[in-house]
């Protein structure tokens, strides 16, 4: 679960934080739903790569399967290196997420903008951002942005306003904030 130290080749544009890209697919063969909800999730997570410069990001991104070619119930997670994209991670345990629901076909551009907004430090919230997720589902797709402190309403409001400004979301998109505690229930 570790790809080793990050590299900063000369001449490349360093990011503020290194990030890891993860892939997960919902397991369909697990019979016990509780196992699927907890252990199954961790086991289905795969670390795809890590990036520490803008050039490394594009080198990885252009090789990732296009979102509209991904099967249903798959997720891509781009998280700061050292934070696993799970509620149980200490960075996430008191956190929450803004969830944006989009009609099929609308998520690709918004996901790209969301990744770039995070990598480029466009969310002015100190070190609150943990990572972003795109979830491919049956009728609609979802984007999520996870932050550390769900109870910090000033921060969550600032993230919401930044999302609206940066993602150029279609009018049909809906947004709601969920604490990870709510999601666990």
């Amino acid at each position: 679960l570790d790809l080793g130290p990050v590299e900063y080749p000369a001449g490349e544009h360093r990011l503020q934080h290194p990030y890891c890209l993860w892939f997960s697919k919902r397991q369909t063969l697990v019979r016990n739903p509780q196992v699927q909800a907890t252990e199954g999730y961790g086991q289905s997570l795969r670390l795809v790569g890590q990036v520490a410069t803008v050039e490394q990001w594009w080198g990885l991104y252009i090789h990732v399967v296009r979102l509209h070619d991904l099967p249903q119930h798959t997720d891509l997670h781009l998280f700061k290196k050292g934070i696993r994209p799970m509620w149980e991670d200490p960075a996430n345990s008191k956190g929450g997420k803004w969830v944006i629901r989009l009609r099929k076909g609308q998520v690709g551009r918004a996901w790209e903008n969301l990744c770039m907004a995070m990598l480029g430090e466009q969310f002015v919230t100190g070190n609150e951002i943990c990572g972003v997720v795109v979830s491919i589902r049956y009728q609609e797709d979802q984007l999520s942005i996870w932050n550390r402190t769900a109870s910090d309403q000033a921060t969550t409001a600032r993230i919401r306003d930044s999302l609206k400004r940066l993602l150029n979301l279609p009018a049909t998109a809906t947004m709601e904030y969920k604490t990870h505690n709510d999601s666990l229930k």
Partner: peptide, 21 residues
């Protein structure tokens, strides 16, 4: 140190740089 901030247009420019291919 100084926080490293990049705007979308700058990042998109680098997308097509030879080093990322």
């Amino acid at each position: 140190g100084t926080k490293i901030v990049y705007e979308r247009a700058f990042l998109m420019n680098l997308r097509n740089s030879p080093i990322s291919k």
